[in-house]
Design a protein around this nucleic acid. Structure first.
Lengths: 202, 202
DNA sequence: CCTATTCACATACGCTTCGTATGCCAATTG
DNA sequence: CAATTGGCATACGAAGCGTATGTGAATAGG
């Protein structure tokens, strides 16, 4: 018995996703020819349509995979941090770091939203956001963060800023210097969420 | 003399841009057929290629037009505001408001970046950002905003958050309620930029 | 062990869309 | 009034996508 059937199927699915991920990440979604990257996986479009319905379906699968990896990495980093606030800041930093990878930028922040619409409406719906939202909620209960704001909303705004931050660093001619400026500005923004020690002003 | 030549040319250019703008804004860039929307303007692709080189060139022209309109509207709102900080906040609010229009969302925030790349690298380069950057710089000199951050960087981060804010409102099932939550969270983030009255903390 | 059925995947076809090359006609120029 | 420019349309070829159909191997049933 060479290989069980199920295993072969899972393998071709994985090969398709991997090939598409590479093509989407480098060439871009619109410019990536289905004939080309299925061939690079030793397959044809027949397999693609069979498993994913169409090109968009395959993109969804690729995005789900990347999203899973990002969430895992964030959870790992998140697990070690002295305070919860630091924990939260670390999550954001990690998010920005990951967004520096061209593949993630292209697929998750550019082509993904363009093809599938607002990421907030995606099925798996960004595991990263969910994690950030949880921590914001906890921080509110602890009195560290102002209680007037909606955690998920705040998470998404921060998420938008993070993505801009990453793009700015990635496209910079001097990533080192830019990175410093961006991270400084970003942390400054986050300060706005903290409850002030003296609430008399304003 | 019916019409001077130059006028006719400008007119066809305008008609093409208007038709494309409508098609891109409703159908979407990728799905908009050049044959279709040029025909809806009483023209053919011949005119399009002659004036704009290709589809992307036309998108650039459309974006330039919209960007100009946005900048004009922002400057107008900006002109009336008691304090400079309020001025700045108003700019942001106006930006979010404009981003609620589906056409702007689609063209400027989704298809535009996907096709032309990071907006920060666009030629006209978002007149809105430039305006915000100017005001942030002034606010720093006045000592209202912390001096440690780079104005343009901060503008872009805020810009990213604004765009998220607008999308969240626009896609909400209850725009009224969502709008309140989003604006609250957004203004809270902006607070982070303000210099604290008592600089001893931190 | 042999037949039947399923199904993963390939092949073949037509349709749409894009980019280029070419042609035509009106408006300018001298 | 002749010549030329250039704005725009038409014609053609190439490529990509989606669907319909075909095929062969693995499973299931007797």
């Amino acid at each position: 018995m060479h290989k069980p059937r199920k295993e072969m199927i899972a393998e071709t699915r994985a090969k398709l996703i991997a090939a598409a991920r590479h093509a989407f990440g480098t060439t871009g979604y619109a410019e990536a020819s289905m004939d080309d990257f299925t061939a690079s996986a030793g397959l044809t479009r027949g397999a693609l349509y069979h498993h994913f319905g169409d090109k968009k379906g395959l993109l969804q699968a690729v995005i789900a995979q990347i999203d899973g990896e990002m969430a895992a990495r964030i959870n790992e980093v998140a697990s070690r941090a002295p305070t919860r606030w630091q924990h939260f800041v670390d999550e954001c930093s990690t998010y920005i770091e990951m967004a520096l990878e061209p593949e993630i930028q292209r697929i998750m922040f550019r082509d993904g939203p363009a093809v599938l619409g607002d990421p907030a409406q995606w099925p798996n719906c960004s595991a990263c956001i969910a994690s950030m939202t949880d921590h914001l909620t906890a921080l509110q209960e602890e009195g560290v963060v102002v209680s007037s704001l909606d955690p998920e909303t705040a998470s998404r705004l921060i998420n938008g800023a993070s993505s801009q931050a990453a793009q700015r660093i990635a496209n910079s001619s001097d990533p080192e210097a830019t990175s410093k400026k961006v991270v400084t500005a970003f942390k400054q923004l986050l300060e706005g969420l903290l409850k002030k020690p003296d609430p008399q002003s304003n």
